[in-house]
């Protein structure tokens, strides 16, 4: 990997440096399918850029990390360009000092790749209305993560207030394997679900989403109850003369229980952030089911 540090620079200098590097390496920016903007603070930077780089192996992208720094310092832009092994595309870390913090969009606009989609991801704190944020406004898709909020359940409950089609949250992405497994369990007729509950560690936004999704789809009251974790540990759905249960204790393997059938072991591992991000980048159209679910979460009283 090659990395270049550029102190007190401008976006156009960065842009020409990127072009120069590409010509040197002999790899023009073909095959890149999107620009991924990561907005995070310095402490989140390493993990976020790493996850983004791994996801970019499936979705070759230019990764632009926007890192706001000290407000009190003199206004300036520091950049760090990384090309090479870690990622298939390019990574640019943009450190914004002083007044520039408020004008990240002006730095980004010359650096977004032409003609291809932009995705904005906030691994940490996210604006209340992502689409109205100057940086978020560039994104065709805006990815937040309720789990990183101080009160993550409150965060997911308020998502609908600032919702614009194209928003999504990694708390929702985390439960795709659970939803997929539950859907597979219902591929064979089960009968009417009377009620049920989702077990998870306390203050878990994904549990709320899963419970609301299930109660909307099954038209039955599904509550959230606390367990020791880690993460989601079980879904229990009661029906006439039995129950459908998915239980996971070691965060890797789950047991599926259905009436009239033997219990079965299913792999259901917690996924790293890079996998979540890769899933998020696979489809860039608005996720209508997510919208319905967060609308439900806002009114939900089963927490």
């Amino acid at each position: 990997m090659t990395s270049f540090l550029m102190g007190s620079t401008t976006a156009s200098e960065i842009s020409s440096q990127l072009t120069r590097l590409r010509h040197q390496v002999g790899a023009p920016a073909v095959g890149m399918v999107l620009t991924l903007v990561v907005v995070c603070d310095e402490s989140h930077q390493y993990d976020a850029v790493r996850a983004a780089s791994e996801a970019s192996r499936e979705h070759p992208s230019r990764i632009l990390a926007v890192i706001p720094r000290e407000r009190e310092e003199a206004t300036r832009l520091d950049a760090e360009i990384r090309v090479g092994e870690l990622t298939t595309g390019e990574v640019v870390l943009l450190r914004l000092y002083g007044e520039l913090r408020e004008h990240a969009d002006s730095v980004l606009s010359p650096l977004l790749l032409a003609d291809i989609p932009v995705v904005v991801w906030w691994p940490g704190d996210a604006p209340e209305a992502p689409a109205k944020d100057p940086v978020g406004g560039y994104g065709q898709r805006r990815v937040t993560d309720a789990r990183s909020a101080r009160d993550s359940v409150a965060a997911i409950r308020s998502r609908i207030d600032g919702y614009t089609p194209g928003d999504t949250d990694l708390a929702w992405t985390r439960i795709t394997p659970w939803r997929s497994l539950l859907a597979a369990a219902f591929d064979q007729p089960v009968g009417k679900i009377l009620d049920g509950y989702v077990e998870a560690e306390p203050d878990h936004p994904s549990a709320a989403l899963l419970a609301v999704w299930l109660s909307q789809k099954l038209d039955a009251p599904i509550r959230v109850t606390e367990s020791k974790g880690p993460g989601l540990t079980a879904v229990r759905l009661r029906l006439d003369g039995g129950e459908v249960v998915v239980e996971r204790h070691d965060s890797r393997t789950a047991t599926l229980v259905r009436p009239g059938q033997p219990n079965r072991q299913v792999a259901l591992a917690r996924r790293p952030t890079s996998d979540l991000l890769a899933e998020e980048l696979r489809r860039l159209d608005p996720d209508e089911v997510y919208e319905e679910t967060i609308r439900g979460v806002a009114q939900y009283d089963g927490l």
Binding site: D187, L218, R283, D285, E288
Partner: peptide
């Protein structure tokens, strides 16, 4: 039966096609 599955929704593109 799979189409009648209440948890499947054609708009829900995250859920993969899983064999029965």
């Amino acid at each position: 039966v799979m189409e009648a599955n209440p948890l499947r929704d054609p708009r829900d593109k995250r859920l993969p096609r899983v064999a029965g």
